[in-house]
Design a protein around this nucleic acid. Sequence first.
DNA 1: CGTGTTATTGACCAACATCAAACTTAGTGG
DNA 2: CCACTAAGTTTGATGTTGGTCAATAACACG
Lengths: 247, 247
Amino acid sequence: MDQLVSHDHARLIAQLESIGDVGDAEKAVLATLPLRIRHFPANRDIVRQGDKPNECCLILDGFVCRYKLVAHGRRQILSLHFAGDLPDLQSLQLTQMDHSLGALSAARVAFIPHEAMRAIIRQFPSVGDLLLRHALIDASIFREWIANVGRRTAYERIAHLLCEVQVRMKALQIADGDRFELPLTQTALGDATGLSTVHVNRTLQELRRDDVIQTEGKFYSVRNWERLQEIADFDISYLHMRAEAAP
Amino acid sequence: MDQLVSHDHARLIAQLESIGDVGDAEKAVLATLPLRIRHFPANRDIVRQGDKPNECCLILDGFVCRYKLVAHGRRQILSLHFAGDLPDLQSLQLTQMDHSLGALSAARVAFIPHEAMRAIIRQFPSVGDLLLRHALIDASIFREWIANVGRRTAYERIAHLLCEVQVRMKALQIADGDRFELPLTQTALGDATGLSTVHVNRTLQELRRDDVIQTEGKFYSVRNWERLQEIADFDISYLHMRAEAAP
DNA sequence: CGTGTTATTGACCAACATCAAACTTAGTGG
DNA sequence: CCACTAAGTTTGATGTTGGTCAATAACACG
């Protein structure tokens, strides 16, 4: 059967398997989901605040973020998403987007009609459970971000963001050992951590100087994982990964 | 039928009706949910980070918050909950608590076995949809909090928190017009907004001086709702209320 | 090559934190 | 009902983190 499953559908299935069990029947139906594929260049919006989409989207390639704009043009990035993520499951239940979804790098995105999702959920409640689980893990990550931005110093915040990205990418097999690509400008890193560009720059320098991380362009390597976790006060449990997927 | 529904069950039903339609059959089953009722004094934990609960909880009276502790004893409050809220639906899918739930004032809380919830959901998928909706609105509020703490000044943050509380309490009919009770110490307000106690104190003074709000002990009155919203850059849509429930 | 974006640096400043003490309020037991 | 206590609020003085502004340097890409 496997050879009949497209690479793109396989990504979706792999994502769901990373958080729970997926039966063969479920896999078979998931593989039939219609995917309308579109390409986005970096910095292009995929869905906008205020939109009322009738499709969910699945990231197939590239880096995507959710963000909000607040008064005076300030931007806050709410979450980061990689290949396999379903960043707007909420649109199945909440008609209007309360935030935007934007590409951070060139991205390939699949759109899946809500109707098709709902049909599968009706037929296989277990798929509904997995999607619910995915949405709840999402919420857990938001909570951690509130704590990160609210109660950690710049140094700790950036360390924490790097810990999260490293672990999630490793689980999705996007990271190559301790090395991973993070195509965020320092301004975007600031938007994700509630800091100014200048301060992000100086904080990254500090992390490099302390030999915790190393960077070459958009590529980051963790030089001292123990120390990075310590600095960040990183506790992986909020990611609710299955034991097999956790590092 | 109504006279057979306990006041406590009615609260749960009212909460669900505030976000979607609830049929008569659904109401009837919801009214049979077993509620194990417990009382908590202020500052007592209801569920703790790391726990693996097998019940969901429903707030019946009082004020409750979710929070996380980060290194060096710092605390971040993640959300505020009032009578009618279901603050840990996630435990239906995520076994381990990634944060704690604590009483801010004396609180009466009902515990509902996961099994009973699941049974209802199996029987009435529409109830599952409503609960999912509730959880997704929760997540939307988390997103707004990330933006609040990450990208707003102290003055704006506190104004925003007050806007949210006022609107949500009004929808649940806990607020009395422009006046509502918010039994948070200034330290707790700081934990919710990522500020120090001293700065919360000074910021509240400023809001009072500008005649935007007025306080008497734990009671807050909004003196100038227009202005408060402006300061906070408050856009109600993230609360995803039904048109009838919104002010 | 130019041209626009991103990274880096320095100087300066503002918002907010910290510390410590005084004052107020609410609760408690005699 | 009052004195006592603990918790919460307010104030002042001072320190620090991180923001802002502006300029320069390093890249990336057509």
